[in-house]
């Protein structure tokens, strides 16, 4: 069983440290993933906090059919879509009192260690939302095509096509950035 799943199960059994481990392990990645949808790092972090609050309050049942990360990111994607639809704060989002890590540090810089990755990540942000999502999930979160298709709610073929198109678009974007110096 992967770490995330075991942490969550420990949390469900009443061990709060399990929840802290989840936050520690998935907070940044989930925020950045949501950021590929919302494209606002603060709102993305708020949405990520809301995802964790959902886990904490509602304690949804985790099914082991997919990895915990896939399951968590699916919740994150739905939360992000709800955020964009409503564009307002829900009861769960009254998290003004929460600390925002993005205020203190550059999540992207911390998360994307290498310079090459940083360049690629910045180029990805300039792409279409779907391209950014699929590239982020495949190359940064290292999810399989199946997991990506689950998170994005697409078929495997669609995900493959999407990855192909996204790579093409990323190459063009990197070339453009390179030519611009």
């Amino acid at each position: 069983m992967e770490n995330g799943a075991s942490s969550y199960l420990r949390f469900l059994s009443g061990e709060k440290e399990g929840f802290a481990e989840l936050v520690r392990e998935y907070k940044d990645g989930l925020t950045l993933f949501i950021n590929t949808i919302i494209r606002d790092i603060h709102i993305s972090e708020e949405a990520a906090n809301e995802v964790f609050l959902k886990l904490y309050v509602d304690k949804p049942k985790y099914k082991a059919g997919y990895s915990f990360k896939t399951w968590l990111y699916t919740i994150g994607k739905n939360t992000a879509i709800n955020y964009m639809k409503k564009f307002r704060r829900t009861a769960y989002s009254s998290v003004d009192d929460l600390c925002y890590i993005s205020d203190e540090t550059d999540i992207e810089a911390d998360y994307i260690k290498s310079e090459q990755n940083l360049l690629i990540h910045q180029a990805i942000k300039a792409l279409k939302t779907e391209y950014a999502q699929v590239l982020y999930l495949v190359y940064f979160e290292e999810l399989s095509n199946d997991e990506v298709s689950k998170v994005m709610g697409r078929s495997r073929k669609q995900v493959s096509d999407l990855i192909y198109c996204a790579k093409k678009a990323l190459r063009a974007e990197l070339e453009r950035r390179d030519s611009n110096g």
Partner: peptide
């Protein structure tokens, strides 16, 4: 660390909810 603080804040808010 910052993650622990964030987790603590989330747990506090979750408890109140």
């Amino acid at each position: 660390d910052k993650y622990d603080r964030c987790a603590a804040a989330l747990m506090e808010l979750g408890d109140s909810i």
